[in-house]
Amino acid sequence: MWVSADRERCISGGRCMAATSEVFDQDEDGIVVVLTSNPAPEQEERVRKAAYLCPSRAIRIGDGPAGG
């Protein structure tokens, strides 16, 4: 699995970080920061939940290696 985030689209909701703080964080302005673009298999369900919960749909996920 790979994950990325559109920082321009982020509205600082923080739901991604609440769903999995091991993968997402926020900068000093509250904008999403992806900590790892290839989350561990055991984190996949929470990453998918984070993408679903994102109010601005800023999180993108896919199968395979990062960017794949």
Rank of each mutant, 00 (worst) to 15 (best):
V47H: 07
E8R: 09
P65F: 09
C10W: 07
G67E: 10
A50T: 03
P41A: 08
A58S: 15
T36F: 13
N38I: 04
V33T: 12
P41Q: 02
E28Q: 11
V32D: 03
D6S: 15
D63R: 06
V47R: 04
P39Y: 06
A19E: 05
G64N: 08
A58R: 08
G13D: 07
L53A: 05
V34T: 08
E42S: 09
V23W: 06
G13R: 00
A18N: 09
F24I: 06
R46N: 06
D27G: 03
L53P: 04
P55W: 09
D27M: 01
V32R: 05
A50Q: 01
R7P: 00
P41L: 08
G30V: 01
A58N: 07
Y52R: 14
G67N: 10
V33I: 15
K49M: 08
A66M: 01
V34W: 07
K49F: 07
F24W: 11
P55G: 09
E44C: 01
D6R: 11
G13A: 11
P65H: 10
I61V: 14
E45S: 14
V47F: 08
A19S: 14
S12H: 05
S21C: 04
V32W: 10
R48W: 10
V47T: 09
A18I: 05
T20R: 02
